[in-house]
Amino acid sequence: MIRAVIVMSTEGKSRLARFYDYQPPEKQQELIRRLYGVLSSRPEGVSNFAQVEAIFGPDTRMVYKHYATLYFVFVFDSSENELAMLDLIQVFVETLDKCFKNVCELDIVFNFNKMHSILDEIVFGGQVLETSSDEVLKAVEEITRLEKSASSGGPLPKSVVGRLSR
């Protein structure tokens, strides 16, 4: 399963942090700090894997990708395939790119809520759920539409929405 998904800037500021095991907030910050220590010591042009067992415990692996000013990091265990996780980062970034039209760090900084919506469609409780960025986009658009509409609880919209989604 995927243990954590973290997006952080190359300066070490976290932009998105989702842990699928319970970690208290201070511990999360510490993990991110130590992760940054690993990432910042990796030279350019080397593999996208790094050892993180010292940080996240036994049977954990990590794969990351470096885009412009951001690191995208997936931490996972032996139930996931390393290359598949690398692909998943690609899916995630692609989706962000489609969603924000040429995504940049600022989009990620100012769209906390939407970032989580997107991630939740791809990774659900540590399980990979959707690997097609178009499908993710569809689901996220529906959520965004709902968020913009005034209500979701009234009898009419509910049934409409229910029918729509069927």
Partner: peptide, 15 residues
């Protein structure tokens, strides 16, 4: 409503 039920499911599979 799918997204609402999904929210509950997401919460139930969160830590």
């Amino acid at each position: 409503c799918d997204p609402a039920a999904a929210l509950a499911l997401e919460f139930l599979s969160s830590p």
